[in-house]
Every structure is written in C-alpha cells, then in structure tokens.
Design a protein around this nucleic acid. Sequence first.
DNA 1: TTGTAAGCGTTATCAT
DNA 2: ATGATAACGCTTACAA
Lengths: 332, 332
Amino acid sequence: MATIYEVSALAGVSLSSVSRVMNNHEHVSEKTKVKVKAAMETLGYRPNAVARSLASNRSDCVGILVSQLHGPFFGDILTGIEEELRAAGKHSIIAAGHSDKTIEKESIDFLISRNCDALILLVDAVCDEYLIELNKGKTPFVIINRRVDGLEDRCLYLDNHLGGYLATKHLIEQGHRNIGYISGPLSIEDAKARLEGHKEALSEFDIAFEKERCYEGDYLTQSGQDGANQLLNDGRQYSAIACANDEMAAGAMKGIRDHNIEIPSGCSIVGFDNVYFAEYLYPKLSTIDYPRIEMAKMSAQWILKNVYKKKSITINNIFSPTLVPRDSIRSL
Amino acid sequence: MATIYEVSALAGVSLSSVSRVMNNHEHVSEKTKVKVKAAMETLGYRPNAVARSLASNRSDCVGILVSQLHGPFFGDILTGIEEELRAAGKHSIIAAGHSDKTIEKESIDFLISRNCDALILLVDAVCDEYLIELNKGKTPFVIINRRVDGLEDRCLYLDNHLGGYLATKHLIEQGHRNIGYISGPLSIEDAKARLEGHKEALSEFDIAFEKERCYEGDYLTQSGQDGANQLLNDGRQYSAIACANDEMAAGAMKGIRDHNIEIPSGCSIVGFDNVYFAEYLYPKLSTIDYPRIEMAKMSAQWILKNVYKKKSITINNIFSPTLVPRDSIRSL
DNA sequence: TTGTAAGCGTTATCAT
DNA sequence: ATGATAACGCTTACAA
C-alpha cells in the first residue's frame, strides 16, 4: 500500500502538494498536478479513507440503519437511498438494527464512531427520548417511517392511519361488512396506526370493531397464514380480510386456500405496502401503495441539502398512501 | 466528543492505561480499571473507531459487496452474513456493485480504503483476472456464487449446472417434452450454467434443444412475463416452462394466465432459487433450492476462521441444489 | 503494572 | 504556488 509519502518522494514535491492534488484544490500548478498524478499511477496509490477521515473529520459516508437487511420493504428503501447518494458521490454504510433496542443503539454508535457525516435511521425499538438526545450530538440524522415530536423536520413518514382507513373503507364500499384484520406487531407505531385507520373506517360505516376479528401478526408471511387460519376457524363469518402488509396478505391467501375457499369469490383480501410481488400473486393483490422509494430518495436528499449543502430541494415530510385496486377483492 | 486524553486526565492515569482498559488487556490492575471505567462513564466516552483503525490497522469490519441491495436473493445473503458476523462481534460494511464493472471495482476500493479486515464478494461484472490480481493485495476475501480458477479455496458456489439439470429432468420425468426455457442474462456465468444443465437434461432424454424455445431474461419478474408471452405466441406447443429463477417464474405465471392458460393444467412451470415467496404463489411454485443462507453463513465462517483465527470450522466450497416439488407442475 | 513516545496516513494552518 | 509542521485519536513497542 503506497502512501502519500512515497508519492511525494517519487513526484519530488511535498506532502501538501500531493494532498492538494488529491483533493482538487485550486492554486496547484499544472506541472505538479501532472507529476503527482504520474507518481500515483506508477505506485498504484489508493488514498486511505480512514486516515483521511481522521484528519479531516469528514468521511463522505452516510450511515444507514434499517431493521432488517432482507424483505421487499427494506430492500427498496436501501436501494433508493444508495442510488441517490451514489449519484451525489457519497458512500453508504449500511447496518441492521433487528428491531432490538440494544442493537439499534450499538449500530448507531458504530455508524457515528466510523465518522459518518450523517445518518438515515429506520428504527422502531429505541424510544423518542433517545432520538431527541441523539439530536444533541454532532451527527445529523433523518428518520424514516416515524414521527418524533420535536424532530418533525427530520422525520419522513407515511400517514399510516390513512392507509389503514383507505383499505378498509374500500372493502366496505365493495359491500363487505364481515371483515377480519391481521395487524402488525402492535408494539410498533406504524402497525398501531394502520389498525386505528381500520377502526375508523369501520366506525364511519357503523360497523362495530370486534377484537376477536383482529389477529396480531408480526409482518411476516407465516403469521399471515396463521392469522387467516385462526380467523376462519373462529366460527364467525368473513367475506374479507385486511392485512397490515403484503407479506402477511400473501400468507393469508395461502391460509384461505388451505380452507378450500376461493379468492376473491369466497373471501376477499387487501394488503398494505404494494411490494413488487403483489401483482404477481394470484389473484393480483389489491393493496395500499407505500411510496417508500420516493421517501428513501427524499431522505437522501435531505442529507444532501442539509449536510452536504447541495442545491436546495424542497423537502416533503409526510407522504400519503394510495389505494391500488387489483383482483383480490370481490364486489358484493 | 470526549477523547482518550480527557479520560486519562480525569482518571489520573496515562493514555496507554486507558487504551489497555478499552481493549481488555491483561496485566491491568483492578484499581486503574475501575478509575478508567468511571471516567469513561462520566464523560460519556465513545471510542473513535476511525482513529483506532488507523493506529492498529484493524477495524473489526468485514466489507460485503453484493450486486443489489434488494431482492429476495441478496436480502437473504446479506442477512445470513450479517447475523453470523454479528454473533462473532464483527461489523459489516455493505455496498452494492450493480453488476457494473466500474462500480464493483470502486466499491471494492472503497471497502479496502475503509480498512476492512476482509471482504465477502458477490460480483458478476469484474473478470477473473481482476480477482486474481486483487488476491495479491493484503485484504483477504471470499467469493460467493462464482468459481474462479486459481482461487478455488476462497470460492463458495452452487452447482448451477446441476440445478438446471434437475429442474428440466424433473419436468421430463413428469412427462413433459415441449419445454420452454427462460434464462438469466447469458453474460453471467450462473445463468449460462443453469441453461447448460437444462440442455444436458434434454439431451439425456433425446429431446432436441431448439434455441427458439429459449428466451433470455434478466432475472427480474417483468422479463419472466415477457418471456412467457413471447414463447406462447411463437406458434409452438409448450406443456411446461423452466425459469432460471423464481422471480422470472412469478412473472411467467402471470404471463401464462394472461393467455388464459391455467397452471399447471395448461402449462407447468418450475423456478430456481426457492425464495421465500415461492410457496405463497398460486399454485405453489415447484423450484430448485439454492442454500444461499447456508452459503452466506459459510462465507462469514471462512472469514472468522482464516482472518480472525476463530475456532476452526470445516469449510465446504461447493453446494448442491435440490429439487423442491410443489404444485406448479402437472404430471402428464 | 504503568508511563513515554513514536507512529498510523492524511489534512490543514501557517509561512515562504 | 509550495512546503514545513502540527494536529486527528488511538495503539503499541519500549522503558521504567
């Protein structure tokens, strides 16, 4: 590993000149530029980002913390952010929080200790107070999919309540009244909000919410299947089931079919998120679109604007879900 | 940000003592340990990983480079690696190569320049020669899903040829002879190998391979749909279509249905990879299992063994695909 | 067991 | 425009 020393020696200039060339400083003569670049070339010199970061207190890296590294939701978020940052010449350092308070904190410490210029956080285990405290530190951050009082300007989130409302309202408008609900983990805010939206729609049409018609899942396919099984075995009538995400909807579809019930003729279903495979399910899944890629890109732009002082973009903090009707809902 | 200086001052000990406590060195008196820890606590001291890495030439980080950050395949790989490394107290730094030669190289440079102790590479654009050259550098690495001559011991790969063979052989054994094939991008080795396996199975049963029955996709759902459309419109008979991955299989299923053909009664289909949503498709997709999580964990173990000198594990370099029969293939 | 001091590979502040 | 030189925050011989 050649260092800046060897380059400076070979080029016959000082360390500072080499550094200047590396960093495209102005006020460097064409002559030294050429000499330095030639020396770098012949030595196969690669700048040491760690030393650079230590000396300059910058890193051109933004840390990204998501709950999981897999799944259609987080995958899209990661890709959206990474592409936006890459286009701006910034690097991404990605970590996983596993929806665990301790791991989320450790991961944030890790990203900060690696000198990230900023963070993009998609965390659901740490409390608001922690984030408010974090905001007093020197590393700026933006939060996705969560609204923290006092940090509104750095929060980008979906109106989950509205999404839950839209899904159930649509079912009701198609004539459904016996509606089951498979929720996400109710310890998580977004899952709670979606359920609240569901309840609001029911109430608007004078349908009583019965907690027996609600199954608490964990956002994974298996729990969707389990939820469908439990609901369909509970003796109640169901003409439709709303799910708090598409993965559970896929699981529920399997569960429904295992009961020899056809979709949507025997039971309708609606999902949430509009992940890429939703339209490849059969029947094509009606769902609620979550503009996560747009949000992901917006989070990156927030950083570019506020941290890297790039050309100003208008930041939008709250995003709206929209209904995507497909073939999984029968009109009664 | 408190530094080691302030800690040493407050604790009334030297820099080295603080460092020793941080790093759990032996030969530190209980007394200083206590003093230092107390000082760290009151100052809210957080070690600076960058400075640490520069001084020690280690980082406790392994760099992971995958083609994409989304998709069921890469997501599982990332999660498998990250969990294994986390359990060993090592961090992951993840980057995307976008199947682009330049980006892959830049990303590798990035990971090395951040002082990663080792790399795990899932790359398909850079050539073998580059990897062989890279191997002369000081950063050890392991390669997933690729076999490079001369680097066999650091390559973990699937027998893709066998996978392609198994899928088509299974179709033939179920009585199919008019078989279409939707391949991955044939510029990529694994896609080529899967197609070769398909051809071998055909040949074994004296079925001629007709290149018109083969559509070259790009591993994404849409191309599966496009491929099915093209095949079904070409005037030939098809009782089954084999796809080089499950995502294209999902797309093909949609394309087949758009032709009002039922699956599997009108046309059978087999995928490849066994991603998590395969069994949630309808009908449940028969496919070839790719033990990618096992491979991902193995790649992490390779690093733990060879770089971090953890307890020795037996490394297995070549993995075998297996047939997962479900409901998408009709027996003729 | 503890402390001193020389790095690690850059950047950045001064001079010149 | 260029060059010394002191940071940056930590590790690590080497001494004591």
